[in-house]
Design a binder for these strands. Structure first.
Lengths: 253, 253
DNA sequence: CAGTGGTCTAGACCACCGG
DNA sequence: CGGTGGTCTAGACCACTGA
């Protein structure tokens, strides 16, 4: 029949709870404020702690909350806009950006990266680790893969420390004329290694940005950058990014 | 002391479980294959169902699995590359792309969008709903906000159906010379409305792409597109996207 | 209808942080 | 040390799918 579904739909408790909490965050809390602990909140709403947690998890996923073990749950500031693709192409690490060099080693790249680089099985590439810090917060951990053939000026046997070596790899890379680049963004979960750098627990949701750099008619380098999904909004394109003036004003309780 | 942390770290069960399952997916299952049900799997690994589910949730988040109520859990195909930003700028809906027009109405935009459009409080804009289908699968639901001032050729009182009206809004928009565009990507969870269009449950993880279109020295339109995070890899830049040849070959069990 | 994944409960213990 | 969030259990019932 053409009945228009009279909606007996019982909304899940955690979903309703999320909505209620979300509105409370807008109207009764200010950024940085600490929420009551999970056991109290659950009791207050008359649900099991697991159900309450399901609602909090979603709000954290949406960047509204920040939870830290041993500390508590706080109201998160609006997400930071982080530029990851600019119209004017640029090699990584150029100019005054916010990357901090960490390390460099020769290694065989993971299979997925090897496929992009079209490198031979087992071929070694320079693997530069960096981390990106914005407004004092770690926002991304990156692995940059550079085949030795892209930076012929370097000797493979290099006794300098990892950091110095990383610096010279980037410097050599910038000698090449960059012909283009493209990126892909997908959702992932933080590996244990990245999680530590990002100050999150393993498995935390992250945005994985894979960028190919083209020079001399081929893929000269590949970057795999892991951004915190809870605190970051990735911006691409002409301008510096979109400033979102979001919803009602946040006032203190 | 300088002890190098002998790592008593007890890895969470669900994390270990996820690793085991992930390897099993690579070696013993092929795309589309149905996994044993959750109760059986939990029993087989000697954990509670909730713990098993925590592992499955992560694998689904990473696009490795697909779960559907009443059906079962299947091995997901690799994520689709979906182009969302091209070097050559283009108005939305131009040429032979995969968007399906759905609807159009005049409405006051949400606060966040109003801020971007710099529109006056309460000003009405054309709101075009579209959905994007790739390889037979719904991948995105979009709301396109077009201030009436961007499409002066249209009469505000229009008796035609929503779809026809949507078409004419896009046609009028394409008359303008596009001067630039930029996008932002962030993680969100599907609103009930979008979830239905994307064939997912409410709250499912999505990638929200906010795009500004510039013309005549101002922001002429804003698009807010909601992509399925589990099945999509968003691509930006010169080329058609990165084809990932991922890990070991998948073979049937 | 039987079987699936989705929701929910009421507990327990653990890892971590700060005072 | 006490308090926080993180993990885990063993159940129960519900909503949906397909035969």
């Amino acid at each position: 029949m053409g009945t228009t579904q009279l909606e007996t739909v019982p909304e899940p408790k955690y979903w309703h709870l999320k909505t209620v909490l979300s509105e409370a965050l807008d109207s009764e809390f200010s950024v940085g404020e600490i929420l009551p602990n999970e056991r109290d909140l659950a009791a207050r709403f008359g649900v099991a702690r697991a159900t309450l947690r399901q609602a909090l998890e979603q709000l954290e996923l949406e960047g509204r909350l920040q939870r830290r073990r041993g500390v508590g749950t706080t109201v998160a500031p609006p997400r930071m806009g982080v530029a990851v693709g600019t119209e004017q192409r640029a090699w990584p690490g150029v100019a005054g950006d916010t990357w901090q060099l960490a390390d460099c080693a020769m290694a065989a790249p993971p299979a997925a990266v090897a496929g992009i680089l079209e490198s031979l099985q087992g071929e070694q590439v320079y693997t530069v680790r960096r981390s990106r810090v914005t407004r004092g917060q770690p926002v991304a951990a990156e692995l940059l893969y550079v085949p030795a053939s892209s930076v012929p000026g370097l000797s493979a046997v290099d006794t300098r420390s990892g950091t110095a070596r990383a610096r010279s790899v980037l410097r050599e890379l910038q000698r090449l004329e960059l012909e283009g680049q493209d990126s892909a963004v997908e959702l992932g979960s933080a590996r244990a290694e990245d999680a530590k750098e990002l100050d999150r627990l393993p498995g935390a949701p992250v945005l994985v940005v894979t960028t190919r750099f083209f020079a001399e008619g081929r893929t000269a380098a590949v970057s795999v950058a892991t951004y915190r999904a809870d605190t970051c909004r990735l911006t691409f394109g002409d301008s510096g990014g979109i400033e979102i003036h979001d919803g009602p004003e946040r006032r203190a309780s």
